[in-house]
Simulated assay, not measured.
Amino acid sequence: MTDSLATLWTQQQHDAAPLDAEALARADARFRRRIRIRDSVEYLAGLLGAGIFANIAVHAADWEIRIACAAIILGTVVVMRNLWRRRPKAPDAALGAASHAFHRANLVAQRDLLLSVWRWYLAPIVPGMVLFLLAAARASAEHMPLAVALAASGVAGTLVGAMFWGIHWLNRAAARRLDVAIAALDRDAQ
């Protein structure tokens, strides 16, 4: 029985085939394509959000709401710049196809990006959202009881907080999937 376990163990060591250059190039191209699609959706959402808040700012009579909208638009621009700067690098044409280390580095960079989403993606929007909620509560208090205006602002703030937490949770889940992919790539390299 010991001999059969030893034989089985040694056969398992030879079963693992390293990732060949073509499979690595396909995996890297597929990964970068998914990131490009994700980023395109983010850019469109940022453009739409900026447009909505620009429209609110133009039509708002309250100067505090206009300032809050400008802060949200500025935060959106910062997020879009951050997203552009953190996109995965393409392999250098002079060096040829993507290497194992290059692909792994792109996966690790994207995982780290997803884990730090609060710092570079959500935080730039927070000041403008807080200003907007406070300005909307103050402006609403001129037309309704203060308690109702504060309650409405609190509900809106809770919804925004829940949305931010959802974004954080989804990015953490995506980072865990990238961890699995990185571990599989490391196993294939051995």
Rank of each mutant, 00 (worst) to 15 (best):
V155H: 00
L8T: 09
W165G: 00
P88S: 08
A151V: 06
D15T: 07
L146A: 14
R85P: 02
R38L: 09
H103Y: 13
R104C: 06
R119N: 12
V117L: 11
I182N: 05
A123C: 09
D20E: 01
A71V: 07
S40V: 03
P88Y: 04
A137L: 10
R33N: 11
C69M: 04
F53P: 14
N82P: 02
T158I: 06
C69I: 01
L48C: 09
D28G: 03
A21M: 00
W169T: 11
S99D: 04
A147T: 11
E42M: 09
H168C: 03
L131I: 06
T7N: 12
M129N: 07
G157F: 10
A90T: 11
R104Q: 13
A94Q: 12
A149H: 03
H100P: 00
G128S: 09
A93E: 13
G46V: 03
R34W: 10
A183V: 05
E22K: 08
W165T: 07
V180M: 10
R26D: 15
Y121S: 11
A123M: 11
R111Q: 07
Q13K: 14
W165E: 11
G51F: 04
A6P: 00
Q12G: 15
N171Q: 10
L5I: 11
A184Q: 14
A16I: 14
A139E: 03
Q13P: 02
V148C: 05
Q11S: 15
P127K: 04
I65R: 00
I67N: 08
A17M: 10
G75S: 09
A57G: 12
R33F: 06
A109Y: 01
I37V: 15
V108D: 06
N82W: 11
W63K: 13
A152M: 15
A68D: 02
N106R: 11
A123E: 08
V180G: 02
R172A: 07
T7E: 15
P127D: 09
G157E: 02
I73A: 06
S116M: 01
R176W: 07
L19A: 04
F102I: 04
A173L: 11
L133A: 07
E64N: 13
H103I: 06
V155L: 14
A152P: 00
M1Q: 08
Q13H: 14
A68L: 05
R187Y: 03
I125Q: 11
I56A: 09
A151Q: 06
A70G: 08
G96I: 04
L107N: 00
P91F: 00
A61K: 07
D92Q: 02
A45H: 01
L146P: 01
L115V: 00
L114Y: 05
L115E: 05
A97G: 04
D179N: 06
R177F: 02
R119I: 10
R172K: 12
W63E: 15
V126L: 12
V79G: 10
W165P: 00
A68M: 04
R81N: 14
P124W: 01
R119K: 13
W63S: 14
L114K: 06
W120G: 01
Q11L: 13
R30M: 07
A94P: 05
I125G: 10
V126M: 07
V126F: 08
R187F: 08
V126C: 08
V155N: 02
A98G: 08
T7D: 11
Q12M: 12
L24N: 02
W120A: 03
A151E: 03
D20H: 05
R26A: 12
L114D: 04
A184K: 12
I67Q: 01
W118V: 01
L185H: 06
G161H: 08
D186I: 05
